[in-house]
Amino acid sequence: MSTKAKARPATAPVVFTANRLRDGRVVWFGAEGIWQDRIAAVTPFAPEAAETGLAEAQQAERQQQVVGVYAVEVGPGPTPLKFRERLRVSGPSVAAEAA
């Protein structure tokens, strides 16, 4: 289903991200087991627990609440290690409202 789910094994703590089905907005999933609007509200899985985390996260995909679940390696914050996912956290780096 989601294409990026089977990435290489995690070496850093991970959270999961997806788009919410209803409105497409970015959401985050951590050890609490609840999809959240803000990454700050989730607790990362340890690298060893990434597989279990993925299975839990994908449950929401099977229940058709979110789309395109994939793992995101994070540092403290949690803050994604990769730039692309930092943009998913912050939204566009350019003005995203009418001037």
Binding site: M1, N19, L21, R22, D23, G24, R25, V26, E61, Q63, Q64, V67, G68, R84, L87, R88, G91, P92
Partner: peptide
């Protein structure tokens, strides 16, 4: 789709035919 009767795999070709993409932050 919203009721969960269609999966994303089923829905994606239908939405694309109607110009609807899923991007980084939203549709």
């Amino acid at each position: 789709r919203l009721k969960g009767e269609l999966t994303e795999d089923e829905f994606k070709p239908l939405r694309l035919m109607n110009g609807l993409y899923l991007q980084l932050h939203a549709y």
